[in-house]
Every structure is written in structure tokens, then in C-alpha cells.
């Protein structure tokens, strides 16, 4: 399980080298519509490999920093929300759009369904090579912001968050949930739900590519990355016996380099949202806040 594929380090080092050769050239534009009395929200543009101009929402609290910060890696889908109101009160927030998502879909727009298998026959052409580069560039951008307390930076998301944390050690805390690339070739046998079904669709159409697809995906399985994580990690864990459950995630958990905690999801969003919010707030030195207001003024 934890055996890295041949050429793993060379592959990822090459991406780092490509990034290093491309200046990020950040550009911030305030968005009055999203700005409040307690924070300013910017659209931040940065250059990733390609070169490709990507972007994200950067929210900075008013007042004297530096502030704890959270990077949200992009979800699978065309839209990522503006950072949550409560989060913007407490943290510098950076929500990245990878290339092809809305607001960064020029010159190239991702297809849904389709993104998961775009270029998957080869690790050199796989779209997630560039998408991970976008995440790494986003991490560099946030970690170097002067408003950010470099000792209190968290990253949240799916596999992209884990891989980014593994390759950019400036994060102190990680929350990971809803992993897609972890054991994906096994997972695909157990589901017909999208987006994983995209992979089934692809391999029905191109069964002869099964080995090469598996070879590509091995480079993106977080199990091969997480040993270099130094942050404290909270792993959301599903039900016993299920994909995403404790047995399923145990090999990943065993490989994570830093301290690991499990959060057992209840499937009750109010409870789960509050629990994860509280964990992050406690790590980052802020007060927990529920998105759901139980009392009204």
C-alpha cells in the first residue's frame, strides 16, 4: 500500500521545479460586494505552471495581524463558495479555484463529468498534475502573506489538502474529508456514483488502459505523500465497513507523518460542522462558532 511508484520523487520534484521557474506575480483586487465591516475580501490572481493564471478569494480581517489562516483547497465541481462569514471574522481565508473552475475557466474550462479522467492515460498529461501545481502555488501564496501568522496556518479539503500539506510544510493543521484519490481503483469497484463513476465510464470505453490509468493514479494517491506531513491532522472517518470508514482509512492514517486524530462523522451536518469548526478554532486559537444561529437577537 505505501510503496511509492517508481519515479515518484522525480515526478513531483519536476512539478516543483516548473513552479519555481514561473513567478507567481500576485495581484489583489478588492471586492466591495463581499467586503464587510470586519474584513476585506479580495480576488487574488496568481500564476501557476503552464503558465496559467489561477485565482481565489482572499479574505483578511480588519485590525492588527498577523492572523491565523485557513486555506481551502478546491472541491470537485465548477464552483467554490466565497469563504464562510464566520470564518472570515476569525481567520485570513484563502479559497482557491484551480484552473478550469468558474472564475478561472479562461482560457480553459473543465468538464463535469470529465475532469477526473482528463489526460489520465499518462501521468505526464493528467490534468491533476496541473491542478496539484495550482494548489501548491496557492499554498506558497498564502504562506507568504504578511498578514498571516506563519505558526497558525491550516489547510482543509480532500486529497488535494493532504498532498498540498505534504509538499508544503508551512501548514500546522490539516483537516481532510471526502477523499477521492485514495484507493480510487479499489473504490471504483464499489460504487456507481459520480464523480468516481467517471473512472468506470472511462475504463469501460478504454479497458486496455487499465494498467496505465492505475499507474497514473498511484502518483496521486495521498497514501504515497502523507509521510512528509508535519502538521497535526484531523481525519474525518465514516462508518465501519464503508468506503471512508476506519478500516478503509487505516493504511492512510498509519502513513501520516504528524499527529493524527480521527473525527467520526455522525452524518448530521449540524453536529459535524460544529465539531470540525471547534477543532480548527481550538488549534488556531480562536473561539468556535456555529454556522447555525441557535438564538436570535
Amino acid at each position: 500500500m505505501s510503496q511509492q511508484p517508481t519515479g515518484f520523487s522525480d515526478y513531483w520534484n519536476a512539478i516543483d521545479a516548473e513552479l519555481a521557474a514561473v513567478p507567481a506575480r500576485p495581484e489583489l483586487e478588492a471586492i466591495p460586494m463581499r467586503t464587510t465591516h470586519f474584513c476585506t475580501v479580495y480576488w487574488a490572481k496568481i500564476t501557476s505552471i503552464g503558465p496559467y493564471r489561477i485565482g481565489g478569494y482572499l479574505s483578511i480581517p480588519h485590525g492588527d495581524g498577523p492572523f491565523p489562516a485557513i486555506m481551502q483547497t478546491p472541491k470537485y465541481g465548477s464552483v467554490n463558495h466565497v469563504p464562510d462569514y464566520n470564518d472570515r471574522k476569525r481567520y485570513v481565508m484563502f479559497t482557491l479555484m484551480h484552473r478550469g473552475q468558474r472564475l478561472t475557466d479562461s482560457p480553459w474550462a473543465a468538464a463535469y463529468p470529465g475532469l477526473l479522467t482528463d489526460g489520465i492515460a499518462s501521468k505526464a498529461t493528467y490534468i491533476y498534475r496541473s491542478i496539484l501545481a495550482d494548489c501548491l502555488r496557492g499554498a506558497e501564496f498564502l504562506q507568504n502573506r504578511p498578514e498571516v501568522d506563519s505558526s497558525r496556518i491550516a489547510i482543509t479539503g480532500d486529497d488535494l489538502a493532504l498532498i498540498t500539506a505534504a509538499r508544503r510544510p508551512g501548514f500546522s493543521f490539516v483537516h481532510a474529508a471526502g477523499l477521492m484519490f485514495y484507493r480510487l481503483m479499489e473504490n471504483r469497484e464499489r460504487t456507481s456514483a459520480y464523480p468516481v463513476e467517471e473512472l468506470n465510464d472511462y475504463l469501460r470505453a478504454f479497458p486496455e488502459q487499465s494498467d496505465s490509468v492505475a499507474g497514473t493514479l498511484a502518483f496521486f494517491d495521498p497514501v504515497h505523500h502523507v509521510s512528509t506531513i508535519t502538521a497535526r491532522t484531523l481525519l474525518s472517518v465514516g462508518d465501519g465497513g464503508a468506503v471512508g470508514g476506519p478500516e478503509w482509512l487505516q493504511p492512510l492514517k498509519d502513513q501520516i507523518g504528524g499527529a493524527v486524530e480521527e473525527y467520526r462523522v455522525t452524518h448530521r451536518g449540524g453536529t459535524d460542522n460544529d465539531s470540525i469548526d471547534a477543532w480548527l478554532a481550538n488549534q488556531l486559537g480562536r473561539e468556535p462558532m456555529s454556522k447555525f444561529r441557535r438564538t436570535l437577537p
Binding site: H267, R268, G270, K291
Partner: peptide, 13 residues
Amino acid sequence: TAENCAHDAGAFW
């Protein structure tokens, strides 16, 4: 109605 559920609206069940 689903107690303690948010926008998931208890979809799991």
C-alpha cells in the same frame, strides 16, 4: 425533519 442536521437535511437516512 432531521434533528442536528444542516443542509444535508438528513439525506444519509
